[in-house]
Design a protein around this nucleic acid. Structure first.
Lengths: 85, 85
DNA sequence: AGTGTATTTTGATATTTTTCTAAATAAGGA
DNA sequence: TCCTTATTTAGAAAAATATCAAAATACACT
């Protein structure tokens, strides 16, 4: 399982998460939002999936990505611990 | 100003922040906690400083590092936005 | 089986990051 | 001024990451 911190260190991946926050997107829809090849976006999606930040389900030919907030909740707790006055 | 996300993506730097959470440390004290050269730790400290995650003050020959939680507070707000149900 | 669409994987290259050694800087004290 | 201690900077090597083009896989439809 990939580290959630390194997964979030990339701007593209954070933007993907913001898109998924509003609603689930297919891999193709996500590709359309970036000036990157499908291969590159697919790679970013795999990093997010390894970090458990997104979930996937397949519908026919398309793969639908949605956000998984449980790891972010954990991160929040961690950050509160560090940031607390 | 360096990105706070990439600053936090490194394990050593997160450990440095945890040490600074308990109390300020000199650069040398921080070096002692890691199996890394002083130059390397100094580099990590400069990354943390560029991200505004630590503050420094000099006392005689030593440089004292302390945590700056204001950026972490911002990050918390951001994460709450993404992680909110 | 063959074709078309959507997505992932592979293999290669370019860039970034981490780390080290050695040199440079900063400050105090003899 | 010279020496010692603490820290940073410069330069280089090694490791990790981002990116692309091309090939491979998955699935639906005819």
């Amino acid at each position: 399982m990939r580290d959630v911190w390194s997964a979030l260190s990339d701007k593209t991946r954070r933007e993907i998460l913001m898109l998924l926050k509003s609603r689930p997107h297919t891999a193709g829809e996500l590709c359309d939002q970036f000036d990157l090849t499908a291969a590159t976006v697919s790679h970013h999606l795999s990093v997010l999936r390894e970090a458990n930040l997104v979930k996937t389900r397949r519908r026919a030919q398309t793969v639908i990505y949605s956000i998984n907030t449980t790891v972010l909740q954990d991160m929040l707790v961690y950050l509160m611990g560090v940031a607390r006055k």
